[in-house]
C-alpha cells in the first residue's frame, strides 16, 4: 500500500540531501515504527508521504496514488485518504472536541447527517464520548492527543501517520495512546509512527525502520530501538 522506489530528496534552497535512494515497502494493515536521530531524514520521509514536499527523484506510491506526480490541486484530495497525528496535537482551540472532529469531516465535504452519525462514533473509539463538548484546553495532553486520533479517524483513512505522537506526553499516557493506535491497527488501518520513544518501540515489538544520514540503515520485522540510534 506504500512504496518508495529509489526516492531521493534534496532541498533546493539549502542544497541539503535529506534522503538518498530510499526503497521501502509497507503492506496494508502493518504497524511500523520509524526511528532515527533528529536530522536523520525521518521528517522528510513523513513530509514526502503527506505530499508536503516533493521527491527530487524516484517514485512514491501510496494507496495506488503516485504521490510524486501529484499536482498541487490534487493534494487535498489525496490527503483525505490519510489520517495525521502530530506531537503538538494541532487542535482548533476555539472549537469543542466534537466540533474538531466534525470540522475534519466538513472540510472534505461530508453532510450534516454523516457528521452527526460518525463524529460521536469516532470519539467513542478513543473513549471521549463524555467530553465531546469540552474545549481542548479543558483536557489533559493525553486526552487532546486522543481527540487528534479521533479526528484522524473521522474520514476513515486506511493509513494513519503519527509524527512523534507521544513526544509531549508522560510514559503512562504515551502507553495509552499507543494502545489506541494499536487498537485502530487491529481493525485493518495501516499505521506509521515516527518516534524517539525507545521504551515504546522496545515494548511493542513491531516492524522498525531506522533512518540515518538519509538512508534506511535497518528494517526489522519485530525490532527494538538499537543503542546507536539513541539520541
Amino acid at each position: 500500500m506504500l512504496q518508495f522506489k529509489n526516492v531521493s530528496k534534496t532541498y533546493e534552497n539549502t542544497n541539503v540531501t535529506a534522503l538518498e535512494n530510499v526503497n521501502l515497502d509497507i503492506e496494508k494493515g502493518e504497524f511500523v515504527f520509524l526511528v532515527g536521530h533528529s536530522g536523520a531524514g525521518k521528517s522528510t520521509l513523513i513530509k514526502l508521504i503527506t505530499a508536503e514536499e516533493k521527491a527530487t527523484s524516484g517514485e512514491i506510491i501510496i494507496n495506488d496514488i503516485n504521490v510524486s506526480k501529484l499536482k498541487r490541486k490534487e493534494i487535498p484530495y489525496y490527503r483525505r485518504t490519510l489520517g495525521m497525528v502530530f506531537q503538538d496535537f494541532r487542535l482548533l482551540d476555539n472549537k469543542t472536541v466534537l466540533d474538531n472532529v466534525a470540522f475534519a469531516m466538513r472540510v472534505v465535504g461530508a453532510n450534516k447527517r454523516q457528521i452527526r452519525r460518525r463524529a460521536p462514533d469516532v470519539l467513542g473509539r478513543v473513549g471521549l464520548s463524555q467530553k465531546a463538548h469540552f474545549l481542548p484546553d479543558q483536557l489533559s495532553g493525553g486526552e487532546q492527543q486522543r481527540v487528534a486520533i479521533a479526528r484522524a479517524l473521522a474520514n476513515n483513512p486506511n493509513l494513519i501517520i503519527a509524527d512523534e505522537p507521544t513526544g509531549n506526553l508522560d510514559p503512562d499516557t504515551s502507553k495509552e495512546i499507543m494502545e489506541y493506535l494499536e487498537e485502530i491497527n487491529r481493525s485493518g488501518t495501516t499505521i506509521i509512527v515516527a518516534t524517539h520513544d525507545k521504551d515504546i518501540v522496545n515494548r511493542m515489538h513491531k516492524r522498525v525502520i531506522a533512518v540515518d544520514g538519509g538512508t534506511i540503515v535497518r528494517d526489522d520485522e519485530r525490532g527494538g530501538y538499537s543503542e546507536h540510534e539513541e539520541l
Binding site: P76, Y77, Y78, R80, M84, L91, L92, V107, V108, N155
Partner: peptide, 16 residues
C-alpha cells in the same frame, strides 16, 4: 495560520 494549517492537513482545498 494554525487553523489554516490544520485545514490543509485534513485535506481542505485552497478554495475551501
Amino acid at each position: 495560520r494554525k487553523h489554516i494549517n490544520i485545514m490543509k492537513y485534513v485535506g481542505a482545498t485552497n478554495w475551501f
